[in-house]
Amino acid sequence: MTLIERAGLAALHRLDPERAHDWSLRALAAGLVPGPGGPFTSPRLATDVAGLSLPNPVGLAAGYDKNAVAVGALARAGFGFVEVGAATPLPQPGNPRPRLFRLAEDRAIINRFGFNNDGIDRIAARLAARRRGTVPVGLNIGANKDSADRAADFARVAGQAAPVADFLTINVSSPNTEKLRDLQGARALAALIAGVLAARDASGARPPVFVKIAPDLDEAALSELAAVLRDSGVDGAIATNTTLSRSGLTSAHAAQAGGLSGAPLFDLSTRQLARLYRLTQGRLPIIGVGGIGSAQQAWDKIAAGASAIQVYSALIYQGFSLADRIARALDARLAEHGIGHLSHLTGRDAERWAR
């Protein structure tokens, strides 16, 4: 990190975590955060994932820019792709504050935001107004907390977002909306996916659709889910969302309710990714997310079965330059190992990680 970046992070860490999050977004949107001006790329890194052309495989996970207010700046921050949201049909405030906690000793965060967002009408309008470029921008889609028909909520958001987003992610794995994870069951998930795909197709646009899964599924549940993904027509998966586990934490905030992300999630999410890769026989593109804070961890995630990766929590501790640093280091390491393209690394260590 540069001295300016270190100073900026130190200032933000003096603020309440959610206020710091909001101020960082404002600074980014205002052009006050220095960055590379675009994603680093090379013939080794440029890749295709479910029809998306990525200049590099290092993406931004959903949850940072929930309302798509800084999309242009994020596309210039070094990421190979960006995911915003989650968006629900109607605006909702989310859970009461405080709902975001830094666990500095564990290099982690706990959040219980609860899908706070401006609603799909406003978010879709912002996505429609953005300048399209080489960095794909996708939308994480969800359901309102008080909805009587959550599957219908997902379909409605998908239909509105499909013409303006480069990809869609069905988020049935957030732990912060009551009973949302129940939609990961085979029958419910199959019906939900069918509704989303029908709404997407009816819009006249066909962006790829991913399903984001939880790291806490047991082997039987993951096997059922993998079968649904194989048969449903979705284009890929994102593994994984945050965890309810608190194993090994040392921070005073460890007992806070919500989803845990950051460094402690890495091993759990990578094992789940590898298991999903094996269950789908490597035929379903998987974006790996959870605990990545270095080029080595990005390498491990890809070797476990990921076609691309996403970061988020590590940015809180290492700054936005992390994406560019990881991309450049990955490229150098691929060259050092004589690997001509990133895809040749995908799944190389899946069996070891799955164990």
Score class of each variant (00 low, 15 high):
residue 2 T to M: 11
residue 3 L to M: 13
residue 4 I to C: 06
residue 14 R to W: 09
residue 20 A to W: 05
residue 23 W to R: 15
residue 25 L to I: 12
residue 29 A to L: 10
residue 29 A to R: 13
residue 35 G to Q: 05
residue 35 G to R: 02
residue 42 S to I: 04
residue 49 V to K: 06
residue 52 L to G: 00
residue 54 L to S: 11
residue 60 L to K: 13
residue 60 L to A: 08
residue 64 Y to W: 15
residue 69 V to P: 10
residue 72 G to Q: 08
residue 78 G to D: 00
residue 80 G to R: 07
residue 81 F to A: 05
residue 81 F to I: 05
residue 82 V to C: 14
residue 83 E to N: 03
residue 87 A to E: 13
residue 90 L to M: 02
residue 91 P to S: 05
residue 91 P to Y: 04
residue 93 P to H: 08
residue 98 P to H: 01
residue 99 R to W: 00
residue 103 L to P: 00
residue 103 L to Q: 04
residue 103 L to M: 02
residue 104 A to N: 14
residue 104 A to E: 12
residue 106 D to R: 04
residue 110 I to Q: 04
residue 115 F to S: 03
residue 115 F to P: 08
residue 116 N to C: 00
residue 120 I to V: 14
residue 123 I to Q: 14
residue 125 A to H: 11
residue 127 L to E: 09
residue 128 A to E: 08
residue 129 A to N: 06
residue 132 R to W: 09
residue 136 P to H: 12
residue 143 A to I: 00
residue 143 A to C: 10
residue 144 N to E: 06
residue 146 D to P: 09
residue 150 R to A: 15
residue 151 A to S: 15
residue 155 A to Q: 12
residue 156 R to K: 07
residue 157 V to M: 14
residue 158 A to V: 08
residue 162 A to Y: 05
residue 170 I to N: 09
residue 172 V to M: 05
residue 173 S to D: 12
residue 175 P to I: 03
residue 180 L to E: 11
residue 180 L to D: 10
residue 190 A to L: 07
residue 195 G to M: 14
residue 196 V to K: 13
residue 197 L to N: 12
residue 200 R to V: 13
residue 208 P to E: 12
residue 208 P to S: 10
residue 211 V to D: 14
residue 211 V to M: 06
residue 213 I to P: 13
residue 214 A to I: 04
residue 214 A to M: 10
residue 214 A to G: 13
residue 215 P to R: 09
residue 219 E to R: 07
residue 222 L to A: 03
residue 224 E to S: 13
residue 225 L to W: 03
residue 232 S to K: 05
residue 233 G to S: 02
residue 235 D to W: 01
residue 237 A to Q: 04
residue 237 A to G: 06
residue 239 A to R: 12
residue 249 L to K: 02
residue 258 G to N: 01
residue 263 A to C: 00
residue 265 L to V: 00
residue 267 D to Q: 03
residue 272 Q to S: 07
residue 273 L to W: 06
residue 279 L to F: 11
residue 280 T to A: 11
residue 281 Q to K: 14
residue 288 G to P: 03
residue 291 G to A: 11
residue 296 Q to C: 02
residue 298 A to S: 10
residue 302 I to V: 02
residue 308 A to V: 00
residue 309 I to T: 09
residue 310 Q to S: 09
residue 312 Y to P: 10
residue 312 Y to Q: 07
residue 313 S to V: 05
residue 315 L to G: 15
residue 319 G to D: 14
residue 321 S to E: 08
residue 323 A to Q: 13
residue 332 A to Q: 13
residue 332 A to K: 12
residue 333 R to M: 08
residue 337 H to G: 13
residue 338 G to F: 15
residue 339 I to P: 15
residue 339 I to C: 15
residue 341 H to E: 09
residue 342 L to Q: 10
residue 346 T to Q: 14
residue 348 R to D: 11
